[in-house]
Each structure stands twice: as C-alpha cells, then as structure tokens.
Design a protein around this nucleic acid. Structure first.
Lengths: 227, 227
DNA sequence: CTTCAATCAGGAGGATTTTCATGTGGCGGT
DNA sequence: ACCGCCACATGAAAATCCTCCTGATTGAAG
C-alpha cells in the first residue's frame, strides 16, 4: 500500500518513513508542498500524510489543490499547532483527519488503518455510473439500461475499478495491483479472461460498447463509437 | 444502555468513555464523523454524543444524516464554540441538546439522564419490516406472514442487523464486528451456522426467500426472485 | 442433572477463479 | 499486397475456494 509523505523536516520525514516501512507500507517522500501536490496528482496513493507548514506551498493549499482535482484519497494532516481554529481550517480545506505533533507512532498507525479501511466504505449509497450502466457499491448490484446483471465477486471488483477510472486507460499492471492485490506477475492471462467475462455480461447485449482495448496499453471504459 | 461517542480527540474521548462506564453505560467510540454515522445507522444506541468538529464529516452533517434516515434517537452535541449561531445550527440540524466544552461531567450525566428518560417515556415501539417479515425491537418478537417465530438472542441480533441493512450486502467482517462485537477473526464459521439457523426459521417455510448469499461478498436481506 | 444455546469441526457439493490451448486480427516489415 | 508475429479473445477443462450442512462439543441456566 502506497503512502505519500509530504514533510519538510528531513529527520521527521525519515523517522516516519522508516516506521511505516516496518509496517509494510511503501512510502514516497516529498520535501515541499509543490512537489508533493504534483506527486499526489500524478501517481496513485492510498493515503497522503501532509505537514501544514511547508516550503513553496503550505499544507492547506496542497489539500485544496488535491480536492480541486476531486481526488477522494484520504489526507491526514500533521501539525505542531493544536488550536481549534487550525483544526477547522484543516478539515475545511478537505483533510480527512488531523494529528497534532508530537504524536505516538501507534496513533499514527491506527489512524492510517482507519482512513484506508474507510476509504472503501460509505455511509449513504455510492453509485458509480457511466452511460446507462450503474453499479451500486453497497448493494453490490449492477444494472445496464435498467436490466439487472449479476456478477461474481471478481467481476464486480474489476468493473468497479474500471468505473472509478472511466475514460482513463488502465494497464494490466494497474488492474493486477488494484483488483487482484498482487504485484506478482505470473505471466497469466486472468485479466484478459475477466475482461472477456465482463464484455459478455455488460457489453454483448447492449450498445454502445463500453469496454475498449487499446492494444499494447490496456483497457478503457468509455462511450465511443467503434471505428 | 449503549451510548455512541463520536469525538476525535483521543484524550477527551477516553475521558468521557471512562466516566460514562463508571456509571454503567456501555460506550462505543468513533473517531470521525463518517464512521460515527455508519455506526449510528447500523447499530442501536440509546444516545449519541457528538462533537461538532470532526474529521471526514462534521457533527452537523452527521446529525442530518442520522435524521434523514428518520432515526429518532437522542443526539447530544458537544462543542468548543459557544456562540448562539452554532447552537442554532446544531439544533436545527436535528440535535436534541447542546453542551459547551469545557463542561462539568456532572452536567453531562444530567443531560444524558434527561434525554434517555424522555425517550423511554415515548414508548419506543420500533418495528423493522421487510416484505411480510416483522421484527419488534422492544418486544423481541418476530413474525412472518403473521406467524410468530421464536429466535434465540443471537439469532435475533443477527436478523435485526440484517434488517437494519436490508437491500445492502453485508460482509462477514461487518457481521462479526457488529453482531458479535469482536473484530478478532477466529477462522470459525459461526456466521454461516447462524445464517443457516435463520434460514430454517424464517425462510424454509415461506416465499419469497429473503436471505440471499452472494458468494465471496456476504449476505443480503431482500426480496428477489431466485435465479 | 437436564436442556438448550452457542460454537466448533469436517466434508460434500457447487460456484468461482485460474490455467491452458487455440483461434483471430491488426500491424510492421518486406 | 503478402506474410508472420504479437497481442488479444475465447472456450472449456482444471484447480481452488466458498458455502452449507451435519453432528459433536462446550457452556450456561434452570
């Protein structure tokens, strides 16, 4: 699981990185807000840990920037200040949680677990849509043009991932990592097979086709007239 | 009597929890609004104590969310701010009472007593329904098509949880955490066994079947024509 | 001591996931 | 235009995982 750590104090940053890595997280570091924001937008992280006081761009701005690009990734803010005002400012700018320095490392771990676990849950009903295709994350149901479609667990997970990244080409590596949760490439063609399953279920009997393959690149979910 | 405490400051939360437990209340904790709302909707509490400033979802939103799902459970809001505006905002959003931090613990206890007393007077007759299945939370009775069905305590708790989450797929992890109140996975199959008990009692002799299993995902309670 | 609730353990059966073998088509090179 | 290659598609078999059920065991209550 990848975490982006944006913190300018080299010692603090190194300390946190080391601790997290001992708990099997992968950590990317940024030492200023600008570079941090850049990384957050370009790569895919499970979580961002963000100091408030940073060179080039402060934590609140970084937070806003990420949210403007409506990424929903969890942001955990760190600060040396503990006043209510700062807390409000942080949460208003789009942070998901807040930790006051100095903190117990155990607490940091607990909050990370909480945030990453919760990123998959939801209180209300989360429905992902694309054209006439609808997927209800809670109910685990899928409809196309109102017709209910039943998927297996993997098929559902794959479709969900494609929907979350609709209009964007996702590579096999992305899919293996996000849907199968292994980066271990076994030279197998499971993905092809599952794409095929999905096509049968959600594209075969409908138009327009939504699943498209970009040879040598991966797959996209989008509305597109076939050539 | 179960109380849900939604408060992000670990120290404050721990303090309140401890105090309440000394007065024989059972306390569940949530450290952010999102998770708090989730718990409030899924489980049954006599009261919610809710901080205004929270990660992920602030107190006012949590309040609204709970009220939208027309639960009538008493909500006691906590805040560090004391201005009239905040108070109005809180009460408008559906809170039943309001306490400004810092407060005397005695006062908190008094208000809790007041709020829970009130709710007991209003003969809470909460009945969960689904198709021809009815479950009376207070009376602990279950009927299907008018036929009384007797369940054991666990069976009842499980069915109640499924009813509160009807139409939504609940995973084994959800069930273990909410009904058995352990997150400790013992690799056992208690849940399967209990689902089986419930099926025998509420589905075996009736149509349509209400309990459905989604392989690899969990169980749902819903009306559904079998494939 | 008896009874009933709650949990555990193991295997059958079925559904899902994965692999394998093979077919197809587009693209670059000639 | 033709050929061969590579990437992808597809069907079916194989392997694995998951669920359900039964019966035994533990534990608590009367």
């Amino acid at each position: 699981m990848k975490i982006l750590l944006i913190e300018d104090e080299p010692k603090v940053s190194a300390f946190i990185k080391k601790g997290l890595e001992e708990h099997t997280y992968e950590v990317d570091q940024a030492y200023d807000g600008f570079y941090g924001a850049k990384l957050a937008l370009e790569k895919e992280y499970a979580l961002v840990i963000l100091d408030v006081i940073l060179p080039r761009m402060n934590g609140v701005e970084v937070c806003k920037t990420i949210r403007q690009h409506n990424l929903t990734l969890p942001i955990l803010m760190l600060t040396a200040l503990g006043s209510t005002d700062d807390k409000i400012l942080g949460l208003d700018s789009g942070a998901d949680d807040y930790l006051v320095k100095p903190f117990e490392f155990q607490e940091l771990l607990a909050r990370i677990r909480a945030l990453t676990r919760r990123s998959q849950e939801s209180v209300g009903t989360e429905v992902l849509k694309m054209a006439d295709l609808e997927l209800d994350v809670q109910k685990k149901t899928v409809h196309r043009s109102g017709v209910p479609i039943s998927l297996t667990a993997r098929e559902f997970a794959l479709l969900q991932y494609l929907l979350r990244n609709k209009e964007r080409v996702v590579s096999r590596v992305d899919i293996i990592e996000q849907v199968w949760e292994t980066s271990f490439d076994t030279g197998s063609n499971v993905i092809d097979v599952y794409i095929n399953f999905l096509r049968k279920k959600i594209d075969r009997d409908f138009t327009p086709k939504l699943i498209h393959t970009l040879v040598g690149m991966g797959y996209v979910l989008k509305e597109m007239e076939e050539k």
